[in-house]
Design a protein around this nucleic acid. Sequence first.
RNA 1: GUGGAUGUAGCUCAGUUGGUUAGAGCACCUGGUUGUGGCCCAGGAGGCCGAGAGUUCAAAUCUCUUCAUCCACCCCA
Length: 418
Amino acid sequence: MKITALNGFKDILPDEIKQWRIVENIATDILERFNFSEIRLPILEKTDLFARSIGESTDIVEKEMYTFVEKQVTMRPEATASLVRAYIQHGLYVQKPVQKLFTIGPMFRHERPQKGRLRQFTQLSAEVLGSASAKIDAELIGMASYFFKTLNLDVSLELNSLGCPDCRPAFRQKLLAFIEDKYDHLCDDCKRRSTTNPLRVLDCKVESCRKEVADAPSIQESLCDVCADHFTTVQKSLDQLQIPYSLNKFMVRGLDYYVRTTFEFLTSDLGAQAAVCAGGRYDGLIEQLGGPKLPGIGFAMGLERLVLLLQQQQEEQEKTCETDLFVAGFGEGPSSFTFELVHALRLSSLRVAQDVEGKGLKSQMKQADKIGARFVLIIGDDELDSGVGVLRNMQTKEETKVSLTVEAVLEQVNNSTC
RNA sequence: GUGGAUGUAGCUCAGUUGGUUAGAGCACCUGGUUGUGGCCCAGGAGGCCGAGAGUUCAAAUCUCUUCAUCCACCCCA
């Protein structure tokens, strides 16, 4: 009976780490250029935090959270709630009126796993707290858009506005009336949705439902003046930054706190998991969680999905040299000598590999080749006696002599780049 | 939670109407070069055929149960 990882939990093996580093490094670089600061948050929070922010009746809160019932704590299913909690708890709004924050880390949702969907998954969340400006919406969306462009990923941007507590109820009524007429023609899921969350009927995947709601009232035409203004400015600002998008009146968001601007970056290469980045404005959330009456907007990106896309959409990366030098000592005396030399070379900043199994030279050469070492330093009895080793360049096959001192080896290896 | 598919070597997969000792490719190890990598050649190691029960003289193969994984629904990043 082998012990395996839990269903929906995945090991990220060394071969995949390169892609993760690419995603993380490019992301943090871009975030910093857009003046975002990193914040690191706990994974465990009081259950109540998520119930109050995400919404009591959402699927996430109702049946997908990993909760320790007796302790009333939950493994976070998303980061925005925790981030806003920290923002309020530490009074960050006092120091700076507008806070731009990001965080990267694991989230947990107990759903049935499938392609691009895990029970533990990693999200990058970027949030701007304290600004209601539509320009911020465009700036944030523009940043995400630039990020995907930098990664050379093929994604599309969809945009919608969900209105605000002033105008959404009226739209909801209009939509309910519309749905009532079509009720008998809708799928079972939509019949259920029409009472629990009517907006969700709009983005049903069933073909017949899509037809039925094709001419449903558009929320974009039911916005109040303030929301309509905001939405127009977001679009104008995106145009100004030359960021392509399409309006999608059927796009709604799953979390209760979203108002006004919502957006998704979509791909067609991940099966049912089309969204690689999604977000929106949540102007009431901070106040709802006990903070000041300040607006906010943010997005979350699923990094596993991005890594999958990188693997699918990009050509194999060239093998980069991850090891500068392989020190091959063979024979008892040389092996003892190289053991010490290798340590010293590592302390002096080189990436050095060695064999400690007492293998022959040929086997050590194979190892060196396999890990992509740039150089091999060969030391047998002769070299140890003379104090001069053989340094082989693995690409050019060129061999030079080098004194067996840290300084001499360091100089020769650093002289040539990968 | 619902539906469908798949479980054979580290990986990708063959395996006939049930029939000796379960195979291939890649990867790994050793040798061909007693001190030199990639290519080539020779050899080697590696399997409770997901697990449990049943049918049978005989099960990787048929039946049942169970577990796991994948895909889709739901939901969502």
